Computed example of a mutant assay.
Amino acid sequence: MLFDKYKNKMDKYLLENITFRTITLILSILIAFLVWIIVSRTDSQKVVFMPPKIINQEFWIAGNEVSKTYLHEMGQFVSFNLLNITKENANNNIENLLTLVDSKFYNEVKIKLLQQTNYIIDNAISRTFFVSAIDADTKGLIKVFGVVKDIIGDKVIDSNQQILSINYSINQGRFIINNISIEKEKPNSQKEVKEEK
């Protein structure tokens, strides 16, 4: 009789022990799975710069790769802020561009932008840029083709074809400007770009 009671209690404790261990194992596996989900979701989050205007095209971003439509939007944004300048919006345009500049080149780019802005302000020039084409086929380089017009009062004092070259890198979806250069367009360079497409 005593042995039966002892055996029943022992069986009950063994069953509780096995149940407890099974539940603990299941919960440990579940916690490990949830930690894996959290870590993988945290690593996949990206900070993506969106130009502050209505986006006209769909685009995608995957790791360090972005679609050409996103590069076109960024090319328009940079060219607008760099080459559409009046003395009223000059400082604001500089701030818009500096948010995208790599920290290694920040001071150098800021000095160049301030020099350009001071030239515009000191001479009371309004500069406008009309985009005619954007080439984003080369990785790390966006070329924006268009006409730059310098205006004083209501007279156009200078108008010429220019190419804005934007060297960039993408780091987890973040668009970073490494270098910007402007040069006069050679007569047939835009036609060559269109033929290659």
Rank of each mutant, 00 (worst) to 15 (best):
K110C: 01
R41M: 11
E88C: 10
N91T: 14
I38G: 12
Q116A: 09
I18N: 05
I26Y: 09
I55Q: 14
S189G: 03
G140F: 06
K197V: 00
N188H: 05
S79T: 04
I134S: 02
K46R: 13
W36C: 06
S44T: 03
I125R: 02
Y168F: 03
G153L: 03
M1H: 00
R21T: 12
P187R: 07
S67T: 10
I163E: 06
G75M: 01
M50H: 12
K46S: 15
G63A: 10
K87N: 13
I163T: 06
I157A: 04
D4E: 15
D102F: 02
L30Q: 09
F33Y: 14
L114N: 13
I121H: 00
Q57A: 13
N167K: 02
S67I: 11
L27K: 11
N8Y: 02
S159M: 01
R174C: 02
S189Q: 10
E108K: 13
M10C: 04
I61V: 13
F49G: 04
D137Q: 10
F175K: 01
A124I: 08
K191R: 06
N17W: 05
N17T: 05
R21D: 07
Q45K: 15
K143S: 12
T22W: 03
R41H: 11
K143G: 12
N107T: 14
K7A: 15
Q116L: 10
A32L: 14
E108M: 10
D11S: 12
I23Y: 15
I61Y: 11
I121W: 00
V144K: 00
I38A: 15
I55N: 15
Y106C: 03
I182T: 12
Q116W: 13
I31E: 02
G153C: 09
F130C: 06
D102L: 00
N81S: 10
V193S: 01
N123K: 11
V47D: 11
D150V: 05
K104T: 14
R21P: 01
I85D: 06
V131M: 07
Y168K: 01
L2E: 11
Q190S: 03
T99M: 15
D150A: 00
L114A: 15
I180P: 07
N56P: 09
N92D: 14
S181P: 04
F33C: 11
S28K: 06
I37P: 03
E196Y: 12
W36Q: 08
